[in-house]
Design a protein around this nucleic acid. Structure first.
Lengths: 166, 166
DNA sequence: CAGTATCCCAAGCGATACTG
DNA sequence: CAGTATCGCTTGGGATACTG
């Protein structure tokens, strides 16, 4: 028999404790209804509170909270600046750690482009800022293989696994 | 008149309508608190309702809804099977479209590994099922450049853009 | 085992009003 | 412009009990 009744059918079951898992941890930070969209807008250069609010269509108090949380998590940086003649303004930008979330956003975008776009095509195209060519995320392994868009991946316990520590 | 009162500080503002955007569309499907974790478990080979429920620590009624939604969106497939001697069982598996979400999960995992792992290292390692080598997601452009983990990307209106249709 | 049904609660959200 | 404060509500979610 292959799949037994007693022992769960998955040997690597303990390889990923559900909450310890890096996916779960990251989702705890950015996995709510708005945060990734806020990050997307920040990545696209929207920097001011009111611009974010109106472009996202988010309630102002909610945006306020999200931005505070992002700054707190050091995914975004708030800074004041002033152009001469006018009074002080504030802006939000991605931090380095925040910018490293880009691959996540691009992965979402890629999937949506392939599965949810209308007949005319995707609503937007992400391009390399330096050369202008369209961009995509790919999965590769350290042996140099490219894994395609339905990558065959297995999970193994890592050094920080609960299971590993004996 | 355009959208805003003045003109927003961002030229490419119209390149991504907030809800039309592929990121937003994809998030509408899988962007709630549990779905990506359910997908992660499915990807890891957990297939049975009770196993999912206990491993995730999710309420059963919620899991029920999520699975139904996933099946409905054709991200997962439910099938009955029977091993001889016992009565019928059910299992959930990722569909092809669901498996194509793997790059998203791996992107989350990569970020979490780099920014949220403890001193010992990441709790789990994703490896190429064929060769066993660790796996990662990278962003590349069609010109062949690899963009690194803080990719410099610009958004341009795509063929399905609202703005484009004149 | 594989769910559905019910009930209740809390977080999260939207709308609005207000402040510097 | 850039927020905070308050309020009321809706939507998820948890716990539990029940059915085939």
């Amino acid at each position: 028999m292959s799949t037994a009744s007693a022992v769960p059918a998955v040997p690597e079951y303990g390889a990923f404790d559900s909450e310890t898992c890096s996916i779960a941890r990251t989702l705890a930070l950015v996995g709510d209804r708005w945060t990734l969209l806020v990050l997307r807008d920040l990545a696209n250069g929207v920097r001011r509170f009111d611009d974010l609010a109106s472009h996202l269509g988010i309630a102002r108090n909610v945006l306020s909270k999200r931005l505070a949380a992002l700054v707190d998590a050091e995914l975004a940086v708030r800074s004041g600046y002033r152009t001469e003649g006018s009074r002080e303004r504030y802006e939000y930008r991605l931090s380095h750690a925040g910018r490293e979330l880009m691959p996540i956003l691009l992965a979402f975008m890629g999937w949506g482009d392939r599965h949810l776009a209308g007949p005319q095509g995707p609503p937007a195209v992400a391009v390399h800022a330096d050369c202008g060519a369209p961009v995509r995320t790919v999965v590769t392994c350290e042996a140099g293989h490219e894994l395609g868009d339905r990558p065959r991946v297995r999970m193994r316990p890592g050094p920080g696994s609960r299971r590993r520590q004996e």
